[in-house]
Design a protein around this nucleic acid. Sequence first.
DNA 1: CTGTATCCGCCGCGATACTG
DNA 2: CAGTATCGCGGCGGATACAG
Lengths: 122, 122
Amino acid sequence: MQPGSPDHEWREDCGPRRVLELFSSKWTSMILHVLETRLGGCARTGVLQRSLPGISKKMLTQTLRDMEAARLIDRRVFGTVPPAVEYSLTPLGRRFVEPITLLYDWARTNADALDEMVGKSR
Amino acid sequence: MQPGSPDHEWREDCGPRRVLELFSSKWTSMILHVLETRLGGCARTGVLQRSLPGISKKMLTQTLRDMEAARLIDRRVFGTVPPAVEYSLTPLGRRFVEPITLLYDWARTNADALDEMVGKSR
DNA sequence: CTGTATCCGCCGCGATACTG
DNA sequence: CAGTATCGCGGCGGATACAG
C-alpha cells in the first residue's frame, strides 16, 4: 500500500454509509424508536407528534410517507369520524430499530460525555 | 396516563437526540471512524479526502473545524513545505466513535436488510 | 383529527478561483 | 498540500390556509 493511502474507504454505496444516510433524515430514527417503545408497536399521528417536540405537521406527514414507501412502516386508516390513522413497524422496520436502540442506550449511559460537548462554544 | 399520550418524548435537549443530531452532519461520524481505524488514530487531510469519496474540500475543512471546536479532534500543523496537517482523536472523540462502530458493525452484518430498501422506489 | 397545497426565506453545499 | 473567499442554485422545512 502506498504511503498516505486510506486504510479503507467509505464508498458511496456501501451499507454503513446508507445507514448513516438514514439518520440524516433526522426524524426517521426517532419515529421508529417511538413506535418500537409502544406496546403493540403502533401509534396514532397525534401521539407521534406529541412524542417529538419540535416537529411540524408537514415534516411528520412527509417523513411518514417516505418511511411507508421504504417499507419501514405500515399505515392503517380507520373510517371513523373523526378520522383515526395508526402507524406500525413492518418486519423490516423492526430490524432497523436495532441500531437505533443501540445508539439510544449508548447515549443514556454516556450523558457525562455529552455534557462535555455543551461547552464547545466556550 | 391519559389515553393517546406518548410513552416517552424525545425532548429537544435530551442526550439521545443530541447524538442523533451529531449524525445529521453527515460527515462527522465518517471522519471519526476513519481516524479510529488508522494506526495511531491520526490522518492527514489528503487521506481523509480519499477515504470519503464524494466529500468536497470545502465540506471537509468546514467539518473538521466544527469537530475541533467540539473538541472531538485535535489539529496539528507541521511547518514544513509543502505544509502537512494531521488530525487525531481526542479522548472525547474516542468515546464518540463507540456508537459509530456499533452502527458500522450492525450495517456490515445486515447487508441483506439494507438491500431490501433499495427497492423502495419500485 | 388527519392530511394537502402554496408560498417563501434561509442556508447547506458545490464550483471556482486564489494564497502561502 | 492545505486552506480561504465568493458566488449562486436547490431544496429543506416553517407558516398559513383550506378540506374531509
